[in-house]
Design a protein around this nucleic acid. Structure first.
Lengths: 371, 371
DNA sequence: TCCTTAATTTCGGCGACGAAATTATTATGG
DNA sequence: CCATAATAATTTCGTCGCCGAAATTAAGGA
């Protein structure tokens, strides 16, 4: 999977505000010649256009470039075990629209997904603008081969999702792990604007980590990178679904928080995120301590990775966003107390369409501006 | 610092045994055309030569290529606070010879180092073959700028070592952190032969980590990557020199092992590595448990990194090699119990010249085969 | 008008790649 | 035994991405 990231990065950067070529070169660390070449092609493709030159003192006036956001679209789907969220994205990262469809991962899932995509692709006026489809799938995904290695959440293993979907669709198809899809979105439209190296911490039903080094998403040999949830914390800790004890996930995943709450007698049964949130909001005794401790565990584990990779930024995303205010009081001091140099921590509000937007970014990164 | 690693990798690979071009292409994951181009130049430079074609069944016979190990040398220095170890290395990674010189980091260190290098460079018959000098320095090093940011061990901070040395020497000069220098050596001549992604765990006076992802040594923005020693393990652990508590280093560095031994009343004073070794060898009660526990702590911390980066190999190096038999009983189960997929663990015997050889490899990687 | 400055483009080069061509064998059918 | 096919290694060719240096362009100022 060659990622023609550079042109995608130019589009993403210009999506926020028009910039001239020398600014683009400076921000992306590219040579002026390279930028001239890329922008020429993007203009030829109809994705960019030159604005009126800006006279700014002496010297040749700079020529700002503007994205034509509706020149092409990408479609991103987030595959969940009960439903699929789709987002149709413009070149500047904004949403044309989104939709939600019920989904059953056990009943001919490839055909169901193809049908949803074909509906969008067939729409007159928009369908023909779609340059590709990206899928964000939870679990262990091999994006190079397009195979879902293992997705306990969806009950899939070794499903050749991309090849099979590619046969049914007339546009390129990409798949990746949901956390890495959102990491790609961060690289193009978020933290990547200020950092070439950063981590994305995804807290929700599991705990995942997206890794960006040198403006490239690290995927590992078979796309297995990012298994932060099973970083060992305490060999005597709670048992984990992976068969070991004391993984990070057994403290900070949503189901684990609920389980710990039951253990401490704070709730009588394992509750969902919303209820945990309500309990914390109501300041139920012990709940906030529990969450702050979980946050601290998460923070210490993250600090280790931060130190070793020497990243300067970490961005928190994920379904557990509502709980973040209670995890953070533990997380932030633990990270800051464990990190050698400074670390910029950002938190993104969660939205059901976030991973879908990430999936759409996969397409932007890999295919929109290629060739 | 552009690393013309590919040609160095070809040299290193051929240093072990002659191989034909298509084997080189397969092992390095390059196209056949690329290999043809690189080998052509290496032959032109006089570094390689074609052997007699090997008839091996049908098809065009393969043409094995052989390194001419004495066609060029690289010089590597390991800078220690009491002495400097130098190694003059052949193209195939073997030692021409090594030397040790006393060294005082406080007394015009740049001039001292230059003098040692010039002695070698001036030797008739060998000096003119030396293509560059590499320095392995403990501490936080910025190899791109050639600056020693901070080396508590040597008492240096913000020393522009490379630029200053470059002025005094007629050949290219490179510097890097000692762990990363040895990591480069592993990439070319060790674990890199079988793995594109791996970690190097350096255990000694500190605990460092070298990271290889996609056959590139990860250095981080300013060369700060690899600070494994200060990965937090226990917020209530022993105080660390960095000002925090419970860093990995406070369990597994040599001085920390000695300190823990004192705390447990196993020794009356902080002893050196050799004495710890003797105590363990004599099976002094408690010593082996102490070391196994330290190994386990190290292993758990390493497993976290292994999981997140999804590497499949880890190589242990460092001055504490003699203690490894006692650290390992804790380390190996901790790592294996914390890692999701399989991990190949290798251990390298320590030798005072190891980092010096690594430093020589820096030169091989960056300059020998360039242009 | 000519000089300076800053943005941008052109040009040449490097490293890598895939596809097609070339080369040097072995196997096989007459 | 020889011509031809099959096979495998290697080279050539055209392309792509990126870069630095030099050239060009379009101002402002003396």
């Amino acid at each position: 999977m060659r990622e023609d990231l550079v042109r995608a990065e130019i589009l993403a950067m210009l999506g926020r505000e028009p910039l001239n070529r020398s600014e683009i070169a400076a921000r992306l660390g590219l040579g002026a010649a390279t930028v001239t070449e890329h922008t020429r092609r993007l203009i030829d493709l109809g994705y960019l256009r030159e604005l009126a030159p800006q006279v700014s003192g002496r010297g040749r006036p700079r020529v700002p470039l503007e994205v034509l956001p509706d020149a092409a679209y990408t479609l991103g789907l987030r595959v969940h075990h009960t439903h699929v969220v789709g987002v149709l994205m413009r070149l500047n990262g904004s949403e044309v629209r989104r939709f939600t469809q019920p989904f059953d991962p056990r009943a001919e899932p490839v055909e169901q997904l193809a049908k949803m995509c074909l509906e969008v692709l067939g729409e007159p006026g928009t369908g023909e603008r779609v340059r590709g489809v990206g899928l964000a799938v939870p679990g262990v995904i091999d994006p190079a081969k397009g195979v879902v290695r293992l997705s306990p959440h969806l009950g899939w293993s070794d499903l050749a999702l991309r090849p099979r979907l590619a046969e049914l669709l007339p546009v390129p198809v990409l798949i990746d792990n949901d956390t890495r899809a959102s990491t790609t979105a961060e690289l193009l439209f978020g933290t990547g604007r200020d950092h070439d190296d950063f981590l994305v911490l995804a807290v929700g039903g599991g705990v995942g980590m997206g890794i960006v080094l040198g403006r490239r998403v690290h995927r590992g040999p078979d796309g297995v990178a990012g298994e932060f949830g099973h970083v060992p914390v305490d060999p005597l800790g709670p048992p984990c679904v992976c068969g070991r004890r004391g993984c990070v996930e057994t403290y900070a995943a949503d189901y684990a928080l609920a389980a710990r709450a039951v253990e401490r007698g704070l709730t009588s049964r394992a509750v969902a995120v919303d209820e945990l949130h309500a309990l914390a909001l109501a300041d139920t005794p012990g709940i906030r301590d529990l969450m702050a401790e979980a946050g601290a565990t998460l923070g210490r584990a993250a600090a280790g990775i931060v130190n070793v990779l020497a990243v300067r930024a970490l961005t928190v995303i994920g379904e557990s966003h509502v709980l973040w205010p209670y995890l953070e009081p533990g997380f932030r001091p633990a990270v800051e107390g464990g990190v050698l140099s400074g670390l910029e921590i950002s938190v993104r509000p969660w939205d059901d369409s976030a991973h879908a937007l990430g999936a759409a970014c996969l397409v932007l990164a890999a295919t929109v501006a290629a060739r």
